[in-house]
Design a protein around this nucleic acid. Structure first.
Length: 275
DNA sequence: AGCCCATCCTGTCCGC
DNA sequence: TGCGGACAGGATGGGC
């Protein structure tokens, strides 16, 4: 579900509110998180009385830090939500974790319909090791020289697969890869090696522009996504191709937006003005 | 190396 | 109204 702009929005929202909040109690409401990570159960008590010192994002992962070395590593995958709600507000069967804070009417909830998401506790060093081993650089802080190095390293990849692979760059998912490629005028199945300098520059520029605009509009809400206050994003209104199969292309007014499985995912593009 | 597929899970939507 | 199939913002591991 959430990609970089959505996760960034959640992290910013939490950062503006929960810093210094003291954990009183953590309640796991369903077993699947502990089944996958039994250490969660063992170290639960460790967080009592601890204050949140920072909430960070790396790719699509959320990291919650405390004043000691144990941290939470959270991934929302397809349908995960992480938001603040009043303690008295009803939960449904998809809420899997509740974090109660001392002297706070709001609690932090982790809700996930499809249960693909994870939430577990790691020491800082292990967490950094795990995250660094699996994630490439952040697209928003990547400079053009390093982007060119990545382009040289993966010549045989399809452009879509290049953008989607978290080991190459971390944070872009199915929606934003399509929106970036549309704005760059590049077909998702173009081989990376065939991209000309002008196209590469445009791809780099559009990657940053789309992600920044999406963050400014607090992400895309297609079905499940809500931010840390339970609010929907607005960037879905700016989508030009994602989910628009059969529509006339807004740019060239000639092409009909096509859906095709590329890089294992439904991909939307204009067959006329994306080359 | 890179692509495709199935898999983890639940819900929704569409056609018959 | 029911039923089956396709599909969903992610990531991984196996096979080719």
């Amino acid at each position: 579900m959430p990609e970089l702009p959505e996760v960034e929005t959640i992290v910013r929202g939490l950062n503006s509110r929960v810093i210094g909040w003291e954990v009183e109690k953590i309640i796991f409401l369903s077993g699947h998180l502990q089944d996958k990570h039994p250490e969660n159960e063992k170290i639960l008590n460790y967080f009592k009385g601890q204050k949140i010192s920072a909430v960070r994002r790396r790719g699509k992962m959320i990291i919650v830090e405390f004043d000691h070395e144990l941290r939470w590593l959270i991934h929302l995958k397809m349908t995960g939500q992480l938001y603040l709600a009043r303690r008295t507000e009803a939960t449904d069967k998809h809420v899997h974790v509740r974090v109660i804070f001392k002297k706070q009417a709001q609690e932090l909830r982790f809700r996930d319909v499809r249960k693909f998401g994870f939430w577990f506790c790691l020491k800082g060093a292990e967490l950094e090791k795990k995250v660094c081993a699996s994630l490439g650089p952040e697209p928003l802080t990547l400079n053009y020289q390093d982007f060119l190095r990545l382009w040289k390293k993966y010549p045989a990849r399809q452009a879509k697969s290049f953008l989607l692979d978290q080991k190459i760059m971390a944070g872009i998912g199915n929606i934003y890869s399509d929106e970036i490629l549309f704005r760059a005028g590049i077909r998702p199945d173009r081989r990376v090696r065939t991209l000309k300098v002008g196209e590469l520059k445009k791809l780099y520029r559009m990657m940053k522009q789309v992600l920044r605009e999406a963050i400014a509009l607090k992400g895309s809400s297609i079905s499940d996504y809500v931010d840390s206050s339970g609010e929907r994003g607005q960037f879905q209104e700016k989508h030009r191709v994602y989910g628009k199969e059969g529509a006339t292309c807004q740019r060239c007014k000639k092409g009909i937006i096509r859906r095709q499985k590329i890089a294992g995912r439904s991909s939307y593009f204009c067959p006329v003005c994306q080359k």
